[in-house]
Every structure is written in structure tokens, then in C-alpha cells.
């Protein structure tokens, strides 16, 4: 023992920082940071969300129920669903096709294509509606032809559906493209060598591997489709009972100072948003679980 202590090769300890507190001290920094973060989120998220439900139920349950079961509200809800029911599947098919072409093949102009697909994201909702008016409106390109054949697109349901398709266009594709790119092509090549056709490969090999990403994209697409306001506002005629989606109906009620009714309808949309977030979280958890399994 003495020999070891006497050895000149023992390392010197680095100087201890006197200011470092022991682990028992209160962690001030995390607490302060968490508080500020929560305050910020409360100011901009939690309070407004709570306000929707509060204002909706303030005048009591009867007023609430009357507001959402009133015929104009019902038809607004119906129209909202129709728009989503058409837009989401179409954009889903598009998303799968685009992701297949982009992820499984190499070709020139790929990044340009991806940028173009992202375009609707960067366009203001008002402009999204405007461009369809320019084509299908009375003074638009196809205006005269349409009125000749008595087909109404703008200020009617088809226009609303088109505008909804435009604003929700990239959602599914944006989820699938990076996901399918990250998964590579080997499984698809293996399927090809084993004799599978394109459809068989897509259905049995590719899609099951991206099912969580697909679901995620569909949920976001749907939330946006049902909640779109600006674009739909431009192409609708605000004709009560006919060309109003639920968000537009909320606006009308609000502008007529029917606040309780407006918030009642708004609360339905807020509920939809919360459900969307819940499903999204569940999907994320399942996806993380699955990834953890596969990494072993």
C-alpha cells in the first residue's frame, strides 16, 4: 500500500467547483422554465380552449341544445361532413400515389415535385378560394359555359368541396413521403423477386409498413377539412341552410351577436379538435411502441 501512495504517477484531482450545489438543493432552473412555459401555453392555448366551452354552456344546456339542433346548424354539419368525406379519400389516394413514385424510384425533378406538392400549405386560405372563383365563377374561365349548362360550382356545394380539397391537398403525402423514403426499397424488391405484381406489393408489403403514418396523415387531413374557414368563405355564398359549413355558420351567428349559439356550434368543432388530438396521441404511442419492438 505504501508503495502505491508513494508512486509519483498518481493523477491529481481537478479543482472542485465550490459553487456546485449538492444534489439535494432545489432545482430552480427547471421549475422556473416549466412555469414560464406553462404560462405561455396557458395564455395562448388553454384559456382560449376553455373559453369556447365556457361560453357555449353559459346560458345553460337548453340553449346549447337548441343551437346545435336548429335546422341551419344541422345542414351546416352535414355539409362539413360531405366536404371532408370527399376531400380526404381523394387526397389519401393522391398521397399514396405520390409517395410511391417519389420514395421507390429515382427520377429527375423529384425535389421540384415535392416542393410543388407543398404549395397549398404556403398559400393563404383566402387566395385558395379566390383561384377557384377565377376559374368557375360567373366571370371566370368556365363561367359562361357553366351557366349555360346550369351547373353551379361557386356559391354551391361543389365549389366548397374543391376548395377543401385544395387546402388539404398535401397532408397525407407529406406524412407518407419521408416515411416511405426512410423505409427503403428492399422489402419491395424482395416481393418483386418472389413474383408479386405492383398492386400486390403495394397492398401486402408497403402499406402495412406505413399504416400509422397513413392514419396520422388522414386524421390531420380530416381536421383541416372540417375546420377550413377562409377558403370556403370565399367560394360559398354564405347562403344559410345551403352553402354554409359549420365554421361559416359559426361566423354568421357571431356577426349577428348570437354569441351563445355561435359558441355552441364552435364547441362541436373544438370537441372534434380535441378528439383529433387524442387519436393523434394514441397513434403516436402505438407507433413508438412498434418502433421500439423492431429495434431489438
Amino acid at each position: 500500500m505504501a508503495g502505491v501512495l508513494a508512486s509519483p504517477n498518481l493523477p491529481l484531482h481537478p479543482p472542485v467547483r465550490k459553487s456546485a450545489p449538492g444534489r439535494r438543493a432545489i432545482p430552480w432552473v427547471p421549475i422556473v422554465l416549466i412555469t414560464i412555459a406553462l404560462l405561455y401555453l396557458a395564455l395562448f392555448l388553454f384559456v382560449p380552449l376553455a373559453a369556447v366551452f365556457y361560453e357555449a354552456l353559459r346560458k345553460g344546456a337548453t340553449v346549447y341544445w337548441a343551437a346545435i339542433s336548429e335546422p341551419d346548424a344541422i345542414s351546416a354539419i352535414k355539409l362539413t361532413f360531405i366536404a371532408a368525406l370527399i376531400a380526404v379519400p381523394l387526397n389519401l389516394v393522391f398521397g399514396v400515389a405520390a409517395a410511391w413514385a417519389i420514395a421507390k424510384f429515382d427520377f429527375r425533378g423529384k425535389s421540384l415535385l415535392i416542393t410543388l406538392i407543398d404549395l397549398p400549405f404556403s398559400v393563404s386560405p383566402v387566395i385558395s378560394g379566390l383561384i377557384y372563383v377565377l376559374i368557375f365563377g360567373l366571370q371566370g374561365w368556365l363561367g359562361p359555359w357553366l351557366s349555360e349548362h346550369d351547373v353551379k360550382i361557386i356559391f354551391a356545394v361543389p365549389g366548397i368541396v374543391l376548395a377543401t380539397i385544395f387546402v388539404t391537398f398535401p397532408f397525407v403525402a407529406r406524412e407518407l413521403i419521408p416515411l416511405m423514403q426512410a423505409q427503403g426499397r428492399e422489402e419491395e424488391e424482395a416481393a418483386a423477386v418472389l413474383g408479386a405484381s405492383g398492386w400486390q406489393t403495394l397492398w401486402y408489403v408497403t402499406l402495412p409498413n406505413v399504416k400509422w403514418g397513413l392514419l396520422y396523415g388522414v386524421i390531420l387531413c380530416n381536421a383541416r377539412a372540417m375546420g377550413e374557414f377562409g377558403a370556403v368563405s370565399v367560394v360559398s355564398g354564405h347562403i344559410r341552410g345551403e352553402t354554409n359549413t359549420l365554421p361559416l355558420h359559426v361566423e354568421i351567428l357571431y356577426n349577428e351577436y348570437q354569441f351563445a349559439a355561435a359558441f355552441a356550434c364552435a364547441s362541436l368543432l373544438a370537441l372534434l379538435a380535441v378528439i383529433t388530438l387524442v387519436i393523434k396521441t394514441v397513434v403516436e404511442i402505438r407507433y413508438e411502441q412498434r418502433e421500439k419492438e423492431f429495434r431489438t
Partner: peptide, 14 residues
């Protein structure tokens, strides 16, 4: 042809 890939390329969800 029968092809065996370097990283197996087994269908992970089957």
C-alpha cells in the same frame, strides 16, 4: 430466381 438480401429484407409485419 431466388434472391437472399444482405439484410434479409424480411417482411417485418408478417
Amino acid at each position: 430466381v431466388g434472391f437472399v438480401f444482405q439484410h434479409y429484407a424480411l417482411f417485418r409485419h408478417m
